[in-house]
Each structure stands twice: as structure tokens, then as C-alpha cells.
């Protein structure tokens, strides 16, 4: 019998975006900081979005982001792909085009063979190639737990920035990937997920949001974000809070992994989902018909989740069709922007 193959997820405590610091704690660390001022900084920490944007000239701005996390799948190459797709996603969510990337690595060289790191970086490179991004460098530190991600820089037209907070009443909300990856990766870690599902979810997490971004560029999209560690409702809350309007979600229209529903009721829910609910729960009102397990999935931290796009009602069906024509099959209209109640999310 051969030695048991290395299981990356067994070497770490948290996994994927579920390992994100609880949003409430992060808020405490960041609020009230004295930040340097520069009039070319179009989007920075004062009005946080998916990525920062710095204007270079009237028609060009830099869009920058950084994301890294512990493994949520056991295969090193796949982990690299997912981490890269996840980091690149923030650029797409702003409406930008990624250009350069740098590796961020924390590696336990005393307990893990260096070939694992090579596979991870090869996975990352495969996604950079697909995205038309060049790797310009990186930084590696010794750490007790493996982590990998990218710092990405891209170009963006400063007149066409898809900020989070520009919802308009009547907009339809479109989500491009199913929810439940945090729960599914918890189940993978627990040894419950079979190979077919593991592969299906891995493939979805490793899929770039590039196609969706390219499609949406032809439509008058009002706002966009990508759904990651704060979960669907956490990221939606960022769009809604202080927007002056509200959002109505149709829970049964939200694409989810059906296995995640079963596992949610079994309590295979990452701690991040509870943190997300604690932080944003006050902005969300569930109708009595939404089962607990669906509520849990709506707060489940996603790794490399889909884009959440706000588009006018007139264009919403056309955008949905265009997304599905480009192979983004799970894309669905999940809700709409309403005039009241202000700054609230209603889930029916």
C-alpha cells in the first residue's frame, strides 16, 4: 500500500474565503484610521469596494487588489487555480482588465514537500495565462500553515467603474455562480463529498469571472461586486447599506448546490457563515417561508464566487440570455432593487 496522499485541507484550520477575519473585527481595526489623501485615488479604504482605483490620466486608472487564503481543496494545482481565479475576480467585478500579478505565499517547508508549492504556482499561472496576465514577482514566507494568493493590478476606464454602491430602484440583480462553496468545502474536509461533486465545485471555483465581465461590458450595468468571504447577503449588504434603496431577494431563484442544502441542515457550516450573519443580520429580514438551511447558505462564505450584477429591468433579460449563451449556465435573476424599506434586504 502506498502512503496516504497529502490532503492539503487537513493541514489547515480554516479554508478558502471561510478563513477570512470576521467582518465585525476587521471593521474595528480599520474605522477611524488617518488615511493619506490623494485626489487621484478614486476608490480607496474610505469607501471600500472590491478593489482600489487610482487615476493615472483622464482615460486610464489602475485597479488593484490582493487576495490569499489557506487551501479549501486537496489538490495543489487546483488550489492554485482557485486562489488565482478568486484574486482576479475583484478586478473583473470593478469592470477592469487585469494585467500583472504577484504571488503571495506562506509555506510550511518543514512539513511539506516543495513540489507542492510548485504545483500550486503552476495552477495559479494557468489561470493568469487564461486571463492574459503576466506574473511579475512574488514573496514567500515560512509559515506553519500553507496560504497562497495574488496581488493583481489592472487597467480600468475611470469613467466606467462598476462601484458597489450605485444601485437604482427597479434594477434586477443577477448572480452568476451557485452558492454553497463554503459548506461544500467543509464537507470535503469532513470526507463527505464524493469525487464528482468535489470536481464540479472545484471547477466552478477555478472558473474565472472573466467571461461574465466581458458579457456585462456591453450592457448598462449600474453596480457590481463579487461574492466571496462575506457571503451573498454580506456582499449584498455592502451594496445596500447607505444606498437609499432596498433589495428584495427571491430565495427560491438563487442558484445553490443542492448538496449544500442537505449539509447545511446537518450543521456542516463554516464559522464564517455565522460571523457574516452576526455582522450583517440586522440588515436582512427573512420571511417565515425561507428555511433555516437556505438562510445559512445565503450567508455562507464563498470562495471565488460569482459576480452579483445590478442592471436595469429593461436590459436584465437580455443580459441573462447573453450570460447563458456564453456558457454561464447558473446565472439567474435573484431579486430586484426597491424604493423601500431603505437600506434593507428582504428575503422571500
Amino acid at each position: 500500500m502506498n502512503y496516504k496522499p497529502l490532503k492539503l485541507t487537513q493541514t489547515v484550520r480554516g479554508s478558502g474565503c471561510a478563513a477570512k477575519l470576521a467582518p465585525g473585527i476587521l471593521h474595528k481595526a480599520l474605522c477611524g484610521l488617518d488615511l493619506p489623501v490623494d485626489s487621484n485615488l478614486l476608490i480607496g479604504l474610505e469607501n471600500p469596494d472590491d478593489a482600489g482605483i487610482y487615476k493615472v490620466s483622464d482615460d486610464l486608472a489602475l485597479v488593484q487588489t490582493l487576495d490569499f487564503f489557506p487551501p479549501m481543496v486537496d489538490d495543489p494545482f487546483r488550489f492554485g487555480q482557485i486562489a488565482a481565479a478568486n484574486a482576479l475576480s475583484d478586478i473583473y467585478a470593478m469592470g477592469g482588465t487585469p494585467k500583472t500579478a504577484m504571488n503571495i505565499v506562506a509555506f510550511p517547508s518543514s512539513s511539506m514537500d516543495i513540489s507542492v508549492l510548485r504545483s500550486i504556482i503552476e495552477g495559479g499561472l494557468s489561470k493568469m495565462r487564461e486571463a492574459g496576465v503576466v506574473l511579475v514577482g512574488g514573496h514567500t514566507v515560512e509559515d506553519s500553515e500553507l496560504k497562497y494568493g495574488l496581488s493583481v493590478t489592472g487597467y480600468i476606464d475611470p469613467h466606467r467603474i462598476l462601484a458597489k454602491r450605485s444601485l437604482q430602484v427597479g434594477d434586477r440583480l443577477i448572480l452568476t455562480k451557485p452558492l454553497g462553496t463554503g459548506i461544500v468545502t467543509t464537507a470535503i474536509k469532513a470526507g463527505f463529498a464524493d469525487e464528482e461533486l468535489t470536481e464540479r465545485v472545484t471547477e466552478a471555483m477555478a472558473t474565472l469571472n472573466r467571461e461574465a465581465a466581458v458579457v456585462m461590458a456591453d450592457f448598462s450595468v449600474h453596480a457590481c461586486t463579487d461574492v466571496t468571504g462575506f457571503g451573498f447577503l454580506g456582499h449584498l449588504a455592502e451594496m445596500v447599506v447607505d444606498s437609499g434603496c432596498g433589495v428584495c431577494i427571491n430565495a427560491s431563484a438563487v442558484p445553490v448546490y443542492k448538496e449544500a442544502v442537505e449539509w447545511a441542515s446537518m450543521g456542516l457550516i463554516p464559522a464564517g457563515a455565522y460571523n457574516n450573519r452576526d455582522f450583517r443580520g440586522t440588515f436582512v429580514q427573512f420571511s417565515a417561508t425561507v428555511p433555516q438551511k437556505i438562510q445559512d447558505i445565503l450567508f455562507d462564505p464563498q470562495t471565488s464566487g460569482g459576480l452579483l450584477i445590478a442592471v436595469s429591468e429593461e436590459e436584465s433579460e437580455k443580459l441573462l440570455t447573453a450570460l447563458q449563451m456564453r456558457g454561464i449556465k447558473p446565472a439567474s435573476v435573484v431579486g430586484e432593487v426597491v424604493a423601500s424599506p431603505i437600506d434593507m434586504i428582504i428575503v422571500n
Binding site: A264, L268, I269, A271, A273, N275, Q292
Partner: peptide, 11 residues
């Protein structure tokens, strides 16, 4: 921890 409590209750 609270997450473990809620998960065990759900299970």
C-alpha cells in the same frame, strides 16, 4: 465556540 454550538444544534 458559537459556530460549533449552532452546527451541533442543527445536526
Amino acid at each position: 465556540n458559537e459556530a460549533a454550538r449552532q452546527n451541533v444544534c442543527r445536526f
